[in-house]
Design a protein around this nucleic acid. Structure first.
Length: 498
RNA sequence: GCCCCGUUCGUCUAGUGGCCUAGGACAUAGCCCUCUCAAGGCUAAAACACGGGUUCGAUUCCCGUACGGGGUACCA
């Protein structure tokens, strides 16, 4: 049996380092065993999935050297590899479950489900979840209501009084009480499958032998094995990797740490170094040598060498590793070429040129005017950030609000960024012109220069976010005791990568 | 609340019952090298969460506790 693994990102945002981390382990495992590594796009969430995000994720994985054998842009015998294009397949499989009585139509409204959850929580019930009301509906009635156009979802049934035991390659047997498993929705009212259904159907149809994914999926393991059983399929082997963490040990999130691969590229990290560092997360070479190439990782890859404690993603150590790659693996010519490729390339220079041409009288003025385009985090002083008419508190509120607004921008161009800034000025109740001053310093490190929003568009969302957040921290530290940075730490799960 | 997973220096890790006086690395501090700064070299401080078993012997195996994390959606 040929080993087949996959990375199944959902295109709902920037390419996440967590996705690359999971992809890396899948890639290494497949390569090590002479198998194939597939890429599948899990875009069943119509609200949040975008083609731009998908393109960035594919580009980022390629940049890291994690080329897939089958998937979008490559093709393969199991095409299509985009779930939004596999609707017929899921519908047919849902039909099978409906026929066999392993699934039922549910006509409950979102309101009722919300109320149900609230009641269950208030009553302190030990098991939360769907109460099974529609499970007992008569089949004919259901079909009639469905045919009449009443919206419905399809849920899976769950057995009672059973221990569901699943073997995880790293943890051994993991067991669950069947009655604690929710009657999961398999097909949403819009006709799209949920992750649980699509994932099982696709993994089977695509011949996936080993599902290597994040630990966050362990709780839904029983649903998945139940589905394999209902379909009469042999389940793949499961292996759940520990999650990458923030310094406070919570799941890695962009609020607390830059998580976009684009950010690391923009900061001047080498793909070799980033892959190497991700390979050091929860894994080690038998020799314990810290610096290794993707090829070396493949050669020595062994799931048994994975440690289960969730590793904290440490940019400082990544930086040290990157330094080693720069000075040990590039000759001078290659080093120069990489630098050129990084930011001294024609595209980047052409983006910057129109902003500077009217503002210089000699080329030698260029470095000072544009240095922030080639920098990482800046070091604005508290004084420079509050140099305008606004007080520190207002500046704090501006920066906090701006970060939130920026996060919501999908279409990263000057106009939406400008619009966001105007909204923030309104909300905080300051003049737009006054708002501009601290933001300008936070993003460029200087009080004035090239047009701000064009510059931000070029810099990219992550670097802007990181700089503004850094400026916010600078201000927080300068504040009175007890007035530390606040309002920044609301947790939002990063896009999952399964 | 309930379910599941985890726990070696601040951080990444080595360690699969005796080789452990627990090793390496990042970060920190000191020294050396040196035209500056890096890099490099040397040194220092720094960990087996706790309590019970099992065993001649537990960092390593089992149980419990504590702590951390994840899940609990018509998101993945």
């Amino acid at each position: 049996m040929t080993v087949r693994t996959r990375i199944a990102p959902s295109p709902t945002g920037d390419p996440h380092v967590g996705t690359a981390y999971i992809a890396l382990f899948n890639y290494c495992f497949a390569r090590k065993h002479g198998g194939q590594f597939l890429l599948r796009i899990e875009d069943t969430d119509r609200e949040r999935s975008t083609p731009e995000s998908e393109a960035m994720i594919l580009d980022a994985l390629r940049w890291l050297g994690l080329q897939w054998d089958e998937g979008p842009q490559v093709g393969g015998s199991c095409a299509p590899y985009r779930q939004s294009e596999r609707g017929e397949i899921y519908r047919a499989h849902v039909e099978r479950l409906l026929e066999s009585g392993h699934a039922f139509r549910c006509f409950c409204t979102a309101e009722r489900l919300d109320a149900l959850r609230r009641e269950q929580r208030a009553a302190g019930e030990s098991v939360l979840g769907y109460d099974g009301r529609c499970a007992s509906l008569l089949r004919d009635d259901c079909e009639r209501r469905a045919a009449a156009g009443e919206p419905y979802t399809v849920r899976m049934t769950v057995p009672r009084d059973e221990q569901i035991v699943v073997h995880d390659l790293l943890r051994g047997p993991v067991s669950f009480e069947a009655q604690s498993v929710d009657m999961q929705v398999l097909m949403k009212a819009d006709g799209m499958p949920t992750y649980h259904l699509a994932n099982v159907v696709d993994d089977h149809l695509m011949g996936i032998t080993h599902v290597i994914r994040g630990e966050e999926w362990i709780p839904s393991l029983p649903k998945h094995v139940l589905l394999y059983r209902y379909f009469g399929w042999e389940p793949p082997r499961f292996c759940h990797l520990p999650l990458l963490r923030n310094p406070d040990k919570s799941k890695l999130s962009k609020r607390k740490n830059p998580t976009s691969i684009l950010f690391y590229r923009r900061m001047g990290y080498l793909p070799e170094a980033l892959v190497n560092y991700l390979g050091r997360m929860a894994w080690s070479l038998p020799s314990d040598e810290e610096k290794f190439s993707l090829g070396e990782m493949v050669e020595h890859f062994d799931l048994d060498r994975i440690s289960l404690g969730g590793p904290v993603f440490d940019p400082e150590k990544l930086t040290w590793l990157n330094g080693r790659w720069i000075r040990e693996d590039l000759d001078v010519a290659e080093y120069a070429r990489r630098v050129q490729e990084w930011a001294l390339n024609r595209d980047y220079l052409m983006a910057i040129a129109p902003l500077t041409q009217q503002r210089v009288e000699r080329f030698s003025e260029l470095p000072a005017l544009t240095s922030f385009f080639f920098s990482g985090l800046l070091d604005p002083t508290p004084q420079s950030l509050v140099a305008g008419k606004l007080g520190p508190d207002e500046v704090r509120r501006i920066l906090d609000a701006f970060i939130v607004k920026l996060d919501a921008i999908m279409d990263w161009h000057a106009e939406p960024i400008l619009a966001a800034a105007r909204e923030v000025a309104n909300e905080v109740g300051v003049k737009f012109k006054e708002l501009l001053k601290p933001v300008y310093v936070a993003v460029t490190g200087r009080p004035a220069g090239v047009p701000l929003f064009d510059a931000m568009a070029i810099l990219g969302k992550d670097l802007c976010r990181a700089r503004i957040r850094h400026a916010r921290e600078v201000l927080g530290a300068a504040a009175a005791p007890g007035d530390g940075p606040g309002g920044l730490d609301q947790e939002v799960p990063p896009p999952g990568s399964s």
